[in-house]
Design a protein around this nucleic acid. Structure first.
Lengths: 185, 185
DNA sequence: AAGTTTGTTAAGAAAAAATTTAACGTTGTG
DNA sequence: CACAACGTTAAATTTTTTCTTAACAAACTT
């Protein structure tokens, strides 16, 4: 229990953390955030809770930059605000369960994809179908419209499947098919 | 079959296509490409095949811009180069099967996430474990290291799960659990 | 073999995004 | 009630990314 040993140990812990932090930050572009936001999340990942000033100090960013980045992380449910009465100094906690972050992010993105594209398809398809059924229009044009309708029909199958994927992730049903691995004790 | 009718029909087809193109382009940020690249893909989606000049004309972009954007789309397997002997004018086809694009993109991204983070964990964890087992180090420091080890252990469970998800998407096994919807005929 | 067409690379310009400093509102504190 | 602390917004700067013009290399044509 000598002081020198302790200092060296602390250094090693920082080194180990830094490796993981860098990896997380680098792969977090998949979740649509900048490396800076990734670093913030990864830093919080190793802490129970932090406030903006602690993060600013740790990462050397300005306060507004922290503020906006943390908000982005909250929007994708990677970070939650911890409620604390009697003080204005908010603290934040990182979601440390990656199953949770996976679900939150991809479900919301996939849902958005389904909604936006299905909305467009629902508006576009009737227009095309009307042309297909209009016998006063040249055949080759009607054929083209028909091809497009077939394409949209096929795309709808995918969007429905994606909807079901979202549902099974949300409910946890997917873990019946792909069980979470056991913790080796 | 009069000319006026045909012209109006062509206009309507363009209008319908435009709706879908816009939606696809807008949601394609999920796949890490710019709106411009999204527009290119979405435009090709309605065509059998196109060459760079046709796209440039359609979208009013410069040739180098087309070239780089199409390359990006090829990298994520949304677009394939069509082999054609005897001419230098390459033509490209969009992958129209969204199940395919889903698989190509997410599997490759998830694999990258697993690899990078697992590599980091494999390097960082032994360092932490050494500290945990070092009895000459203060208890509170060892406790901290222990907490981090537990965190990394938990993350490994997720990465293993993600690996299996990739595998089941690649093999198509996932469709046993979540069948592709039937085409309504 | 010279000329033309096609696609890519290089360099510069334009556009977009992120970051910082400064100012502001809000809320707890003395 | 005035002051201080905290977080957000606004405006301006810097940085990064994207796009365009221009020059280039490769390969087909005649």
């Amino acid at each position: 229990m000598n002081k020198h040993k302790d200092e060296s140990a602390i250094e090693k812990i920082e080194e180990a953390k830094e490796m993981v932090i860098e990896a997380i930050a680098e792969t977090m572009d998949l979740y649509g955030v900048t490396p800076a936001a990734g670093r913030i999340y990864a830093t919080m990942y190793f802490e129970d809770h932090m406030n903006l000033d602690e993060m600013r100090e740790e990462l050397g960013m300005s306060k507004p930059s922290m503020s906006t980045n943390v908000r982005k992380l909250q929007q994708i449910d990677f970070v939650k605000k911890r409620f604390q009465r009697g003080t204005r100094k908010h603290t934040y906690t990182a979601e440390k369960d990656f199953f949770q972050t996976f679900m939150a992010y991809f479900c919301s993105m996939w849902e958005r994809e389904v909604k936006m594209n299905m909305d467009a398809v629902k508006k576009a398809e009737p227009i095309l179908i009307e042309i297909v059924n209009d016998e006063t229009v040249s055949n080759d044009i009607r054929e083209e419209a028909k091809k497009h309708v077939a394409l949209l029909e096929k795309s709808k199958l995918y969007y429905h499947w994606l909807e079901e994927l979202v549902e099974s992730v949300r409910t946890g049903e997917i873990y019946n098919f792909l069980p979470k691995p056991e913790e080796t004790k």
